[in-house]
Design a protein around this nucleic acid. Sequence first.
DNA 1: ACAGATGTTCTGCTCGACAGACGTTCTGTC
DNA 2: GACAGAACGTCTGTCGAGCAGAACATCTGT
Lengths: 161, 161
Amino acid sequence: MTALDEDFGFTLGVVFRAYVKATNVAVGDLPGGHRGYQILTAAVRDQPESQSALCQQFGIDRTVMTYLLDDLEGASLVIRRPAPADRRTRLVVATETGRKRLAELDLRLKHAEAHVLAGLSAQDQASLKALLGKLAAHANAADPVGSACQVVQDIAASTPQ
Amino acid sequence: MTALDEDFGFTLGVVFRAYVKATNVAVGDLPGGHRGYQILTAAVRDQPESQSALCQQFGIDRTVMTYLLDDLEGASLVIRRPAPADRRTRLVVATETGRKRLAELDLRLKHAEAHVLAGLSAQDQASLKALLGKLAAHANAADPVGSACQVVQDIAASTPQ
DNA sequence: ACAGATGTTCTGCTCGACAGACGTTCTGTC
DNA sequence: GACAGAACGTCTGTCGAGCAGAACATCTGT
């Protein structure tokens, strides 16, 4: 069908697309999609962080962060709490609802990943992960971009259909 | 830095992002970016095709195809030629300029791919390609979507910064 | 010859992202 | 202590991309 690129770029795209699609389904109607998941994860797993810290970490514009958090807060998944040390900043804290929701999401994402990898034997899966890890480390070193997490949300931005 | 996903999704994203970034640079100021490249490739390599055929093949909206072709035609890379068999349709044909430009682009993309893969030994590169190929074949079979090429342009759509 | 289907283009709308202004609060200097 | 300047978050305005639907030209079948 293609011969567009030899194969690497093309197959990489196919696999990536399948993965994004699967994770989109898994994330479902979470406010903010992939980015909502990233923020929720940070809120649950890490120390409470300021909005701007999250912006920098995930490469999200600060005005975008505002309405992403509006939505997440509207869904009672996180709350904005004034930072005691600096009343300019709001700390993003997960609610109990948010924790539960994240637990579900993690489970669903795990299944999604397994689904995408289902075409490979366990050994091949391990090999693939190892190779991608090596490559990612190399790419990260060569490209000191803010955060590679950004991809995930770059992608969320696409997904037209 | 992350622990967002275990590793697969994350590293896949990093690698993919690096690839997209490299190819974006390689494609340069070609009108339409990735999609311009896809269209140009089809125009050069295949039989002349109608706009709607290209739309379906690449998952591009027909109204979008209109201005993509406007731009490519403005750059003298392709021309719209009335189809002899059906004067409603325009066949997209590459110009000589378009052929030369595509040849350059293919070369640059090859370099870009090599650059992304530079972190791996030749043997590892081959393994990775093989594994991705297997996975892509499986994903394609499971998901009879129009065309996997679509990814490439989905991505072009993202690339915020 | 005519009704309906198809290919292409145009128009209007929506949505997401970003730049810039604004109010609030902190920090450093005098 | 008072002030200038910076930082954080929010709001407003603007821009571009994409899509639905109308409009036009052309083809196909009866």
